[in-house]
Write a protein that binds this DNA or RNA. Structure first.
Length: 969
RNA sequence: GCCGGAGUGGCGAAAUUGGUAGACGCACUUGCCUUAGGAGCAAGCGGGGCAACCCAUAGAGGUUCAAUUCCUCUCUCCGGCACCA
């Protein structure tokens, strides 16, 4: 037999596999399917190092086993080529990203090709392909249409190095995950995806997933659900309310009477003027009547319902003074109603001076009833835009707030601070309230805050701090009291002070907390520093020394005294607040101010606002440009391409401007696994038929670093696609393993920087692909991080060569090998299923040792063994398969089966113990009965049992006999 | 600080309804073969002891005839989150 020459046989079989399309995936085979997937790479300029293929080898072995088990296998590969890594590489090397990507992909394919993977390359996809990103854009549009994509101006993370906004998930320790630059907070226009709407479902469905526990735990922590209560702390002070009724209304309607009574009960003054000619109102008459009915000053809050809201705005336009608040419920600023036209469309002017209204008003509230029958969403959005005020969406008791009681209006009318707490039981101990520096109420109350300058300075400083500075300042608390205003603790009814402090985060809960210094460590530190009162309300600690955060019994809490904190939490929530759930997960900031990404398919029209690009016009192609460097201004480089930006509004045909931000790196990878099922389909994202056949991914393998990014995003998109009927499974990935890192021989991470990178090409050249594959799988448990060892790979090569030489020792079937062969068949199959490749290989080594001891192996036995090794060393196995005269290909040969009866031999070793200590090992027939085992054991240790008293005998059939003895006295 | 996971020879590790601790491999030692070997073959390889045996799975306790495995406490390492109310 010839010398083992891996290069020769590997090239030979790789060519043959390619030419015979051996690994082509078919959906109409009538077979059971198995979808095995690797997290597809972004093709970086550095090429692969030996760590990258580890996961690919595992899926390759797994998918080959599935194929031999008679399944129809989908094991595809593609490229995640949009995003910062590719773009930064291109900028650095002064090439166009698309050219760089093309070059890098060619290199990757060459490297992957050498290792002998069973990918079906006819299904290759690339996220930068317009035929692909057309569907990425399409998914975004479906989200936009469902209100899951929204425009926001909240402060977000900004990386000054990459010059783009980032999602929460892209920030690690306050640094940009890509370039480790400290991120800043920056207020800018963004598209944001409402991933938090799916938080609960993602959490719930996680439970049943058979994923590794550590990955599930990472996701749970990242989503960070906590149940608590929202409690309203009203601002102290008395107001005069002017309540303006609507079209066809009058002051004695139940709704208005009820609102009036509720406010008066709280000690406020309420005026409800009767507006004239209510079935044929005119702006002139109504505004005059409203102005004449009351004096307006800084203690006035104007409430307007429906047309009364329009009147209220007109009133405010005319005032020279500032009022405390403006509350609009069922309001609008154009007469395009959902249901029917109304006669005042022409008797009111629909021009408003939004700036003036804002200037004349402290606090503006726009209440919109989700079920309103007259007011459309776009009408409220226009109103929101006019007054630069977010919409407060609620569900009224009756549509358009027409029930006899509408508590949401009272809540909105009274200036108050809503806090989120998980410790409602400590409400009586809340001695102050703290707002986050971003809290909108600060600006709204500026007229009434006597130290506004100081407060403003603090908030600006706090918001300009980077996350690193904010946490580096550490546990040292800072903050400023809002002088001149106070809130009322709803439980104690006492006035308590309000602070602004950056230990309260704007993005979490309501951005405001009730501070309970006696029972919260942070509040305790803050109260000590500012000398605030500390009120103990839970027994069990010593609040002189420290906050007590444990459970206990309530004290100083009026009629709740004596109740356990557990129980009080529910009771107090019920009395003073409502149950609420908060998440650490933030909505997904989805815009990037960079060139190399999918254009967001929206057009802005002055008349219609943001309009979706019609589906027939997708994809919105990324324009070819010479200069694509980031602008740094917060605008995407695309904004400079006027001929691309300027377009027509798809709705009205008027002038429109394209959205110039692009999508983040994670967009294309959030659904790519679906496209592999049907990569060429131009009519559908994925055809119903193919989705039904292949989905979900049965086995998914990739790095653990994706647990809180890609795997969260993909699960979110999948659930959305489920909701709109594109996919039929609740989860995208059934089984998941995270691949353990391969470290360099020096124990550090492999990196160009350290000069310790090992290149797979060199390893394959020297040891062969099969030895390389076996070595990587034998290094240790799949999920462990292990250091590369050149010494050890020689062992893998030795193993491969010993198998090669086995072909020289073919003879008659050797019955002595039967038992161990069947054991090996069983173990290798089971271990591959469980990703325990290291023990599968060790079992094959044990078998090989046994064959060498026996001196020869039968042809049939050899053919079984070749099939076992085929997933691990596919080239070697194919060559040996051919040499023993079996028909092409071993990779389509049936996986061997084992016989239960052959797993056990004529005799089995059994342990004999005395007092639990090993005293003999004997061979016994496996099927003997208890007494036989015992007497055989007794015989073996006869001498030792002389002169002792046997108290007890434990017999584990076929395994062990233990004599419990004591010295005869 | 909180939440996960782990700790077994010189090294990677194996061993689960509790039942021979260290399989398999690397490195190492000795010998054989060889002009030569980064090849092959044979033997050895946790510690102590001439031996019978004894000790040993991070440490301490416990349950059990029997514990790497179950329970309690402590220590160390890795990963994640981190002022999340």
């Amino acid at each position: 037999m010839s010398r083992y020459d891996p290069k020769e046989i590997e090239e030979k079989w790789q060519k043959r596999w390619r030419e015979s399309a051996l690994y082509k995936s078919l959906e109409d085979s009538g077979k059971e399917k198995s979808y095995v997937l690797d997290m597809f790479p972004y093709p970086s300029g550095e090429g692969l190092h030996v760590g990258h293929p580890k996961g690919y080898i595992a899926t390759d072995i797994y998918s080959r086993l599935q194929r031999m088990r008679g399944k129809s296998v989908l094991h595809p590969m593609g490229w995640d080529a949009f995003g910062l890594p590719a773009e930064n590489f291109a900028i650095k090397n002064k090439v166009h990203p698309s050219a760089a990507v093309e070059r890098n992909i060619a290199r990757y394919k060459e490297q992957l090709g050498m290792i002998g993977f069973d990918y079906d390359w006819s299904r290759e996809i690339n996220t930068i392909d317009p035929g692909y990103y057309r569907w990425t854009q399409w998914i975004f549009l479906q989200m936009f249409k469902k209100g899951l994509a929204y425009e926001s101006n909240e402060p977000i993370n900004w990386c000054p190095q990459c010059q783009t906004g980032l999602a929460n998930e892209d920030v690690e320790d306050g640094q940009c995950e890509r370039c480790n630059t400290a991120v800043e907070k920056r207020r800018m226009r963004q598209w944001v995806l409402r991933i938090t709407d799916y938080a609960d479902r993602m959490l719930q469905d996680l439970e049943a997933l058979p994923w590794p526990e550590h990955i599930k735990e990472l996701q749970r922590n990242w989503i960070g659900r906590s149940e608590g209560a929202e409690i309203i702390f009203p601002l102290s002070g008395k107001y005069k309310f002017v309540l303006l009724h609507g079209f066809n209304g009058n002051p004695s309607e139940d709704t208005y009477l009820w609102i009036k009574k509720e406010l008066e009960n709280r000690g406020h003054e309420v005026v409800v003027p009767e507006l004239p000619n209510t079935s044929a109102p005119t702006e002139k008459e109504w505004v005059a009547a409203a102005l004449g009915a009351a004096t307006y000053d800084k203690n006035t809050i104007v409430i307007g319902h429906s047309l009364g809201a329009v009147t209220a705005m007109k009133v405010l336009e005319k005032l020279d003074t500032t009022v405390a608040g403006l509350v609009l419920f069922g309001g609008f600023c154009d007469p395009n109603f959902l249901d029917k036209a109304r006669p005042f469309a022409n008797t009111f002017s629909w021009k408003f001076d939004g700036g003036k209204i804002q200037k004349n008003t402290g606090r503006i509230v726009i209440l919109h009833d989700r079920n309103d029958t007259a007011i459309s969403r776009s009408q409220v959005e226009a109103l929101s835009h006019l007054l630069d005020t977010p919409i407060t969406e609620v569900v009224a008791k009756e549509p358009h707030f027409e029930a006899s009681e509408e508590p949401v209006v009272i809540h909105a009318a009274l200036p108050s601070i809503k806090v989120f707490t998980t410790r409602a039981d400590t409400l009586f101990g809340a001695t102050y309230v703290v707002l986050a520096p971003e809290h909108p109420l600060l600006g709204e109350l500026r007229e009434r805050i006597s130290n506004w300058k100081e407060v403003e300075k603090y908030t600006i400083t706090a918001q300009h701090k980077t996350e690193i500075e904010r946490t580096a300042d550490g546990k040292e608390k800072s903050g400023v009291e809002l002088k001149g205003i106070k809130v009322i603790n709803p439980a104690t009814e006492k006035e308590i002070p309000i602070f602004v402090a950056d230990y309260v985060l704007g993005g979490y809960g309501t951005g405001a907390i009730m501070a309970v210094p006696a029972h919260d460590e942070r509040d305790f530190a803050f109260a000590k520093k500012f000398n605030l009162s500390i009120q103990e309300v839970i027994t069990g600690g010593d609040i002189e020394k420290a906050a007590y955060t444990g459970p206990g019994t309530l004290i100083n809490s009026e009629h709740f005294d004596g109740v356990s904190s557990e129980e009080a939490r529910q009771k107090i929530t019920r009395s003073y607040g409502e149950v609420k759930v908060s998440y650490k997960l933030r909505d997904w900031v989805f815009s990037r101010q960079r060139y190399w990404g999918e254009p967001i398919p929206l057009i802005h029209c002055d008349k219609d606002g943001w309009v979706a690009v019609p589906e027939k016009d997708l994809p919105v192609r990324l324009p070819e440009v010479d200069h694509y460097e980031p602008t740094g201004t917060g605008e995407s480089p695309l904004s400079n391409i006027t001929e691309w930006v300027n377009t027509r509004c798809p709705t009205c045909g008027g002038p429109g401007r394209r959205e110039t931000n692009t999508m983040p790196q994670w967009a294309g990878s959030s659904w790519y696994y679906l496209r592999f099922m049907d990569p060429k389909d131009s009519a559908e994202l994925v055809s119903k038929k193919n989705e039904k056949y292949w989905a979900p991914v049965d086995m998914y393998v990739g790095g653990a670093e994706h647990a809180t990014r890609h795997l969260i995003y993909a699960r979110f998109w999948h659930k959305f696609l489920y909701d709109i009927g594109i996919v039929t499974t609740l989860e995208p990935f059934t089984h998941l393993y995270s691949v353990g890192l391969i470290l360099a021989e020096d124990g550090r991470k492999m990196s160009k920087r350290f000069g310790n990178v090992i290149n797979p090409d060199d390893v394959v050249m020297r040891y062969g692909a099969d030895a390389f594959r076996v070595y990587e799988m034998f290094m240790g448990p799949f999920e462990n991080a292990v250091a590369w060892s050149t010494d050890s790979i020689a062992g893998a090569r030795r193993f491969v060569e010993r198998i090669w030489r086995l072909a020289e020792h073919m003879g008659d079937e050797d019955p002595s090998l039967e038992q161990i062969l069947h054991q090996t068949v069983k173990k290798v199959g089971e271990d591959i299923e469980q990703f325990k490749f290291n023990t599968a290989i060790s079992q094959m080594m044990i078998f090989l040792n046994a064959v060498e001891d026996a001196g020869s192996i039968g042809t049939k036995q050899f053919s079984i063994f070749v099939r076992l090794i085929a997933p691990f060393a596919p080239h070697l196995a194919e060559e040996l398969w051919e040499r023993v005269g079996e028909p092409y290909s071993v990779h389509r040969a049936p996986w061997p089966s084992f016989e239960e009866s052959k797993l056990v031999g004529e005799s089995v070793p059994m342990v004999v113990q005395i007092n639990g200590r090993l005293r003999a090992t004997i061979n016994v027939p496996p099927k003997a009965d208890q007494h036989e085992f015992q007497s055989l054991a007794e015989e073996a240790v006869k001498e030792r049992l002389k002169g002792v008293h046997i108290k007890r005998v434990i017999v584990v059939p076929g395994r062990l006999v233990n004599f419990v003895v004591e010295e005869k006295s």
